[in-house]
């Protein structure tokens, strides 16, 4: 047993290293890491807890039933209210009104969808600004599109007019 001293020293060092490793590991690896894979599982719950800003379909109709009814009947029925106005979360919080909704009326706004672009599907109704409203004799105001078209429910007549009067040209 003349080497006992050396063996004890080596074992002691090993034990210290092992304890140190476990200690550091305990603090270096966050809780829930590795529960479902090489990541921190609590992160999933953090993502799930984010509050939705856009409302559920039909949420707007709870108060604005008249507008919603007109909107449902028309060609704009596929467009969510929040596309033209704003996310519900900017307007209502805990069933209380917290802010006014924007009502875009400008030609530029309508043009975001209806300005003629060669990349748009040919069957989609689109016109050239300002040619279209000059041609129709509309007064040049900020809300010139809304002089003839109801944004919530653009009528069949309007649509037919648009389709024949200004059918999108095929790319040259």
């Amino acid at each position: 047993m003349e080497h006992a001293k050396h063996i004890i020293r080596a074992v002691l060092l090993l034990v210290i290293a092992a304890v140190g490793f476990v200690f550091v590991r305990h603090f270096a690896i966050p809780a829930s890491f590795g529960e479902h894979g090489h990541y921190r599982f609590d992160s999933v719950a953090e993502y799930k807890s984010q509050a939705p800003l856009h409302g559920a379909p039909g949420a707007c109709a709870e108060c604005h039933d008249e507008e919603a009814e007109a909107h449902e009947e028309g060609k704009h029925a596929t467009i969510s209210c929040e596309v033209c106005h704003a996310p519900l979360g900017q307007h209502i919080k805990n069933d209380e009104k917290i802010g006014a909704m924007p009502i875009p009326r400008s030609t530029e706004w309508c043009g975001i969808c209806h300005q003629r672009l060669i990349a748009r599907p040919k069957t989609f109704p689109q016109v050239v600004f300002p040619d279209h409203w000059i041609e129709k004799g509309a007064e040049t105001t900020e809300a010139v599109c809304l002089e003839c078209h109801d944004a919530h429910n653009p009528s069949e007549e309007d649509s037919a007019d648009t389709a024949t009067g200004s059918a999108p040209a095929a790319p040259k």
């Binding site: 999933v44 993502y47 799930k48 509050a51 856009h54 596929t78 467009i79 969510s80 929040e82």
Partner: peptide, 23 residues
């Protein structure tokens, strides 16, 4: 993109899917 994980886990549509006017 999180695929709007906070929305889809609530049974809501993603913001981009809900906003698309042409499906």
């Amino acid at each position: 993109c999180t695929l709007c994980y906070h929305r889809i886990t609530r049974g809501l549509k993603q913001a981009c899917v809900q906003a698309c006017p042409v499906g």
